[in-house]
Amino acid sequence: MNLPASLPPRARRRRGPRRKPVFAIAVTVVFFVLLYLPIAMVVLFSFNAQKSLTIFKGFSLRWYEAFFHDNVLLGSLGMSLEVSLVAMIGSVVLGVALALGLVRHKGRLGGYAGLIMMVPLITPEIVTGVASLLLFKGLGVTLDSGTVMIAEITFSISYVTVILRSRVAALNPEVEEAAMDLGATRWQALRLVTLPALLPAILASAVLIFALVFDDFVLAYFTTGVDPQPLAVRIYSAIRFGVEPTINAVGTLMLAGSITLIGLALAIPRLFGRRGGLDLISGE
């Protein structure tokens, strides 16, 4: 290493072992406070005894009670759960198959599939929403939970495929060959060996998709019918057209739900005692 001769050797370099970047740490602390404060406010005011959204007047569960007696909101909750479940199953089945095909299939179909699979990832949701709405209207389909499910599956397949594709590519192809060597057909090798090896990643992406779809608002907003509406759409209307503290309670429940699911998605690989589930950092 060439050091400029003007620098006294060592003396300057070792002013501290590695000085703490005070500015960066200060920004990080403020960042964390601002990141969690809004969430904390929602949680706090969901337990407010009064209707005020800015002043806390004592602890109460009245808004949770109100939610569990509100049939419209409960209907929405049921619809959201139903849509999330169907979208999760549909997109995982299609997405896993697509990931396997994309990695192994070397041909024009694979090239085309790989390309169109990337487009949804760079398309803002509002565009996907508008496009889905136009398609359903054009086909003369009545908007209801079915159309939401289709739109959510379309939106989710890419995520499943992206997560699974790197996992499939990392598989040792000899393992599948070993199964065939031992008498399995290609399908059996896939079912008995490849899918079990992918299971942690499949489960993690399934949980992730469930959480994303349950929380998704834009696509649901464009593709849902009038009644019932998914919970996220109800929350949107409620926030826009007059806030009831019930929303804080619903929001808190949703926060708890999605944070649990994400924690689960991150923990699944560990439950299987190995890496290979969800890598949020490297998966873009």
Partner: peptide, 12 residues
């Protein structure tokens, strides 16, 4: 937190 509901976060 970024996987928590966008609307709820934005509302908070």
């Amino acid at each position: 937190p970024f996987f928590a509901n966008y609307l709820v976060r934005m509302y908070g």
